[in-house]
Amino acid sequence: MAVQQRRERERADRHRLIVKAARELAEAEGWGAVTTRRLAERVEYSQPVLYSHFKGKSAIVAAVAVEGFAELATALRQARAPHHAPRAALLALTDTYLDFAREQPALYAAMFVHEIDVEFGSEATPEPLKAAFGEFLGAIEPLAAARGDDRETFAEVLWSALHGLATLTEGSRMRPHEHRARVDLLLDMAVSGA
């Protein structure tokens, strides 16, 4: 039993090492630089060892994305927890989300831009994704109830708007000096009617 547990622990350690190396390489050089050959060199394992953990690059990107959702959920929870007023909680969530996207563009791309084999919005959705979405639900709950809106739809629309802001900002497609005005307008729209 001890030998089997050691092997499982070593396998889990290799898995984490591969995901960590992929994240670091993607943040430094972009996802185009992340290849199984480069990862194998970086983690000092052969490519067959990498393939014993992941079917290919897309599976590695998916693992990075799921890890990112866990981190995002934690960040959103910590940001909104101290705020009891709905607008203040929503502002904290919004700023944290946009900061997360700006500070970790490769991770954000793995989560929201790259095609990954991860289900969203279903029973098969991984728990970290559900937790991140749950933070949006928690932030908009009182607003959706006051407006009579479906809370999941409200959260999806808000998340979509934030994703658009994050993506367009990253692509330098918006006037940087108007960032706060855009966020304030989005929040005003979300709170109106509440």
Rank of each mutant, 00 (worst) to 15 (best):
E10N: 15
E10F: 03
A12R: 14
A12W: 02
D13S: 14
R14I: 09
H15T: 08
I18E: 05
I18P: 04
I18N: 10
K20S: 14
A22I: 06
E24P: 09
E24L: 08
L25I: 08
L25G: 05
L25S: 10
E27V: 00
G30D: 10
G32K: 11
V34T: 07
T35H: 02
R38V: 05
L39Y: 03
L39I: 02
E41G: 11
E41V: 03
E41L: 04
V43G: 11
P48E: 12
V49T: 15
Y51Q: 09
Y51D: 11
H53A: 07
H53Y: 03
F54G: 09
K55W: 08
K55Y: 06
G56I: 08
G56T: 03
I60P: 01
A62G: 06
A63K: 06
A65I: 08
V66K: 02
E67A: 10
G68V: 08
F69A: 04
A73M: 04
T74A: 11
A75S: 12
A75K: 01
R77L: 01
R77I: 01
R80S: 10
A81H: 07
P82T: 08
H84M: 02
A85E: 14
A85L: 10
P86H: 07
R87N: 10
A88S: 14
A88Y: 06
L90Q: 01
L90G: 05
L91K: 14
L91W: 09
T94K: 01
D95S: 00
F100H: 03
F100W: 02
A101Y: 01
R102I: 00
Q104V: 01
P105Q: 06
P105V: 01
P105G: 02
A106T: 07
Y108W: 12
Y108R: 07
A109P: 04
A109T: 01
A110W: 00
A110K: 08
M111K: 10
M111L: 06
F112C: 13
E115L: 06
E115H: 13
E115R: 13
E119H: 12
F120Q: 14
G121R: 06
S122F: 06
A124W: 10
T125W: 00
P128V: 02
P128G: 09
P128E: 05
L129C: 12
L129V: 15
K130M: 11
K130Q: 15
A132Q: 07
G134W: 08
G134K: 00
G138V: 04
I140K: 04
E141Y: 06
L143T: 13
A144N: 11
A144D: 14
A145I: 01
A145M: 12
